[in-house]
């Protein structure tokens, strides 16, 4: 028998032996698991440019690359939507979540937004989550514009803010609220404004959070 044949046979024996393993059964091993964890991490970012939409051929907006859009929002535009929360984050028990947002808006229109926590059983709003730190502030301010309705691009600045959710609010989201209602408003421009195709909305959202990851060993 050649040495290499012998080797092959030995490898087969070795592999077979390696498959043998001793397993110890701990019937009373607790399957509960909770790990304290904190993290600081970036979540999402984007840069939405008008010209990207024109390149994609959004014909319904009748925008062609190079166009200047003239817009006059006479009254505030309201938009609301109700989103079912379902079973969100049931594996996590957060102490806090802080969402840090940063917007650079070179569009002459702004956006305000807030959320309501809604309990569909008792048919009542449980809490309001404001995205601004002070009442009356607009979430995303419209860019400053000149007398021609064009944005003064050198004056466009980054707007930073933070949304802090404490353990009480997070409990309401997680356990009490059945829906979350989004309420968004595009404030009136008050006059004609012009939108050029290189205007953009850049944003970045990151988070800091701390809590416990609660699970069952059987589910791992």
């Amino acid at each position: 028998m050649k040495t290499s044949n012998l080797l092959l046979i030995l490898i087969v024996i070795f592999c077979f032996s390696a498959c043998l393993k001793e397993e110890i059964d701990l019937d009373n091993l607790s399957s509960e698991m909770a790990v304290e964890h904190e993290f600081a991490m970036p979540l999402i970012y984007s840069s939405l440019r008008i010209e990207d939409f024109t390149d994609e051929g959004y014909d319904s907006l009748l925008i062609i690359s190079g166009d200047t859009i003239k817009l006059y929002i006479i009254e505030d535009l309201d938009y609301s939507d109700t989103i079912s929360l379902g079973d969100i984050g049931e594996d996590f028990d957060f102490d806090y979540i802080r969402l840090f947002h940063s917007f650079t808006n070179s569009l002459p229109i702004g956006l305000d937004m807030q959320f309501y926590l809604y309990d569909s059983v008792d048919k009542q709003n449980l809490d309001t989550i404001f995205l601004t730190e002070h009442p009356g502030e607009i979430f995303i301010e419209a860019a400053e514009r000149n007398e021609d309705g064009l944005v003064i691009e050198e004056n466009v600045v980054e707007q930073n803010g933070v949304v802090s959710l404490d353990a009480e609010q997070l409990d309401r989201i997680q356990y009490d609220a059945s829906h979350i209602i989004l309420d968004a408003v595009v404030p009136s421009t008050g006059e004609w404004v012009k939108i050029l195709d290189h205007y953009s909305l850049d944003f970045r959202i990151s988070t800091e959070a701390r809590g416990r990851y609660i699970t069952d060993l059987d589910s791992i």
């Binding site: 701990l26 091993l29 607790s30 698991m33 909770a34 790990v35």
Partner: peptide, 22 residues
């Protein structure tokens, strides 16, 4: 990694809610 909980008789581990993971 494993020890007995004298009160419940369960076998606990470092990631159990009653254990100190830190």
């Amino acid at each position: 990694l494993f020890w007995n909980d004298p009160e419940t008789g369960e076998v606990l581990h470092p990631f159990h809610p009653d254990a100190d993971t830190y």
